[in-house]
Design a protein around this nucleic acid. Structure first.
Lengths: 291, 291
DNA sequence: AGTAATATGAAACAAGTGTTGCTTCGCGTG
DNA sequence: CACGCGAAGCAACACTTGTTTCATATTACT
């Protein structure tokens, strides 16, 4: 009688009873259910980092006679449009749900806005400039700290080129003392514009650093002293300014920088990975759920 | 300049130039475009009442190298949710611009994904739980630090309810010592899952705290011990996992929490604002460009 | 510590995949 | 009436598919 359950539900329900490799496979199916019907089992297994045999075993573990059973089931699900397309149904939401929907829809729209051709060109140009820099100093005060830190963190996995102008005791800006010609500054600043960040950016500018600015207006304080200006929308139906589009910009920059030196990025990542694994930083196995 | 039109459009456009059998095949593809990706070509040919060879010829007639080209194209279309496609405005990009566009489009799509009704309900439920908490501890290790910090920062403008489990000298987790029943934990964790964060979350759980988790899979390590689970996609065409959707989730939560106590939020904001202005934290005028 | 039980990947398997070359068919033209 | 020519099916092709088998690790339990 309990048969209307979806593939994902069954995978989740039985997840804890699976052997490790099968859990890896199951996790992949849960996270990419569409791919069950859209690609071959062997390809899927390769992406999941699992032997093809494991996929067959997983299918049989779920009670199916084989993997093709799963495929047919998922194909039927997709045909019914339950894949993703359940949009724009009349939405008899509660008040809070309506608000979340508004917020998220606006964020999605804002991020989509960034794909305008001129914006793309600005991003590409900024990335090109940053990729040539000897060092990249990263600056983001107050709310923009999140973006600055994230950019620095990601880049630090690739190598040693970024310096984050922040730190305990207010000693963050000190790193600028070692700035040299050929270095660049990535500064993030949205309204209300933190004075400290602006002063530091202006100072860096006087030292001859090139400036890439992520900010919320073409006439924001940072705009005047930026060599490359990336404007991101921050409006939101909610209480606060949004930093999601700024985060998207930052991630786009990271993607470009990694791509511009693919080999170097890979090498750096591998070195990071080796150390992090050696230190047991990451959980390796998918742990059982506590009973 | 590649393929400004969808498969169906191209089929219709060239329909009249096709030989009879090929038209039968084409009609079937036009009427059941999904099946191109969801079943084998031979099956499809059988249903259309056409020889398999005709299908191959049809594909090549359209300029594709073979039928599998069509299959991949359709699979991609289905993956994107098919229904509404802001696709393929002629984009004669340079390579880097094409990559940025892909990245940003995928991010926008992911954020849009979060507006599914079930997701909205989860977010609303999580926010409700958090709004009732006496205190909210915020936890995000490594890459997730950006999200955790941002949530804490925004909430700290409203009042004193959040504690960020991080800090210099590794003393971050200490704040948990003062946790009491009725407190909650907001934990953020995406793959690769940082072990430290997971342990801390598990520990908080044993102390009786309710847990809201933002993570990237229904079977992520955090999922098992979460009372409220918010799943955000992290895939990206670029090198790295994306945190933009997680940021969007966090901002949605903030918006709801502020809204749930509008008066309190306003009062808190005013107090923050007063102090920050008194200290000259924010730049008031737009400075002229130096020199 | 030793043994039974289980989990796993490599390789072998038959069945099915999309493609291609060849043949046949139908039909209009010289 | 040959003739040529495109269309369509058949059958063999090389390849990939999902599955199974089996030997080897790995794990769990006295």
């Amino acid at each position: 009688m309990t048969e209307p359950s979806t593939l994902q539900d069954r995978l989740i329900a039985q997840f804890d009873a699976m052997p490790p490799q099968m859990q890896i496979a199951a996790k992949h199916l849960i996270d990419h259910p569409q791919d069950v019907a859209l690609m071959s089992m062997r390809d899927l297994a390769r992406r999941a980092g699992v032997s093809p045999a494991t996929m067959t075993r997983l299918a049989q573990f779920l009670g199916a006679s084989g993997y093709e059973d799963l495929r047919h089931e998922q194909a039927e699900t997709i045909r019914r449009g339950e894949g993703f397309a359940a949009r724009a149904l009349a939405t008899p939401h509660s008040a809070p749900e309506a608000l979340v929907q508004q917020v998220l829809e606006e964020l999605a729209r804002h991020v989509a806005t960034l794909t305008q051709p001129e914006t793309l060109a600005s991003i590409a140009a900024a990335a090109r400039a940053l990729s040539k820099a000897r060092r990249i100093f990263v600056l983001g005060a107050r709310s923009c700290h999140a973006i600055a830190w994230h950019f620095h963190y990601v880049m630090s996995l690739l190598g040693e080129r970024t310096r984050h102008l922040d730190g305990p005791g207010g000693t963050g800006p000190d790193a600028l003392m070692r700035a040299q010609p050929g270095d660049m500054l990535l500064a993030i600043s949205v309204s209300p514009y933190a004075a400290a960040g602006l002063e530091l950016a202006a100072h860096a500018r006087t030292q001859g650093l090139g400036v890439v600015a992520i900010t919320d207006s073409a006439v924001a304080p940072l705009a005047g002293l930026a060599d490359h200006l990336l404007v991101c929308p921050t409006a939101s139906p909610g209480f606060f300014h949004s930093l999601t589009p700024a985060m998207a910009l930052s991630e786009a920059l990271c993607a470009l920088l990694a791509e511009s030196d693919r080999a170097g990025a890979l090498a750096g990542l591998e070195r990071s990975d080796a150390q992090l694994r050696a230190l047991g930083t990451y959980a390796t196995a998918i742990p059982r759920r506590p009973g």
